[in-house]
Design a protein around this nucleic acid. Structure first.
Length: 260
DNA sequence: TCCCAGGCATCTG
DNA sequence: CAGATGCATGGG
């Protein structure tokens, strides 16, 4: 299934800390295996801007087109960046293939509860064990409890939060969240023990695709201090704050040499 | 050995 | 209300 996609760099998406289950299949990073809940697909950039999805057209239209947010024009979002915002301009130039994936809400919620006070390589490792211990698939809501009770995958104090998260998903019709405003989504999510402001913002942005949600972690805090003199930049209040945050987060981390 | 990581809950003043 | 502290774990 060949698709022409503008503004999509698989390496950038995979290394941007928004998802933890993209597996690089070659040295160059043109081929990835991408997992979402119990689905998987291989994506290969066969030539610049042309991607081969290892699935039927029907499955592409129903699942992966949405997952990769193909119908959002990221060039347009880039064009809205103020010319005088030097750092965001540089970030957007550096991350010219960034996209915000529309991940499964349950998977994103579990992943970002695990992410708290943790580092990205170890988050990936924990999620990998979680899937490994569940016959290779990301555990569904009704499966996660038995996995956690059977084996210790190094979650530490976060483990109890996952039980609370599962209870929340069982008791609350989380589909309703999609219809709500950003503020209402945050208020509901943050009632769950183990979900604070940062994790709630990640769930909003990566699980609900709420673009005005802007996760602020130590890296974003750092770049506000070092690149904006400690003054919160205007883009954080914009309708696309989450996307701009992703560009800055990616650029700042790569520039500081944390990646490779 | 200490410090840090896509933080949060809880306690203290 | 803001600010400090403990928390599990593993890598540098």
């Amino acid at each position: 299934m060949l698709v022409e996609v503008d503004h999509m760099d698989l390496n950038q998406i995979a290394d941007s800390g928004q998802c933890f289950r993209m597996k690089k299949l070659d040295d160059e990073g043109k081929r990835y295996k991408v997992y979402s809940l119990s689905r998987e697909v291989e994506v290969c950039e066969v030539e610049k801007g042309i991607f081969d999805f290892s699935c039927s057209e029907e499955e592409y239209d129903r699942v992966w087109r949405d997952y990769f947010d193909i119908d959002t024009n990221y060039n347009y979002l880039d064009s809205l960046i103020p010319k005088d915002d030097v750092f965001l301009q540089a970030s957007s130039n550096y991350g010219k293939g960034m996209r915000i994936l529309k991940q499964n809400l349950w998977e994103a919620s579990v992943s970002f509860v695990i992410s708290q006070n943790n580092n990205i390589p170890r988050i990936k490792k924990i999620i990998e064990s979680l899937c490994y211990e569940n016959d290779g698939n990301f555990p569904y809501l009704d499966e996660i409890g038995s996995v956690l009770e059977r084996v210790d995958i190094g979650l530490g104090y976060r483990e109890k939060y996952l039980f609370d998260l599962a209870d929340f998903f069982k008791e609350y019709n989380t589909e309703d969240l999609y219809e709500m405003s950003y503020v209402d989504q945050m208020n509901i999510l943050m009632k769950v023990r183990g979900i604070g402001g940062k994790v709630a913002n990640c769930i909003c942005l990566y699980g609900l695709h709420t673009f005005d949600a802007c996760p602020v972690d130590v890296w974003v805090e750092r770049l506000v201090n070092e690149e904006y003199g400690g003054v919160t930049p205007d883009w954080m209040y914009s309708d696309y704050a989450g996307y701009y945050q992703q560009l800055c987060f990616y650029y700042k981390r790569h520039k500081s040499g944390v990646i490779k």
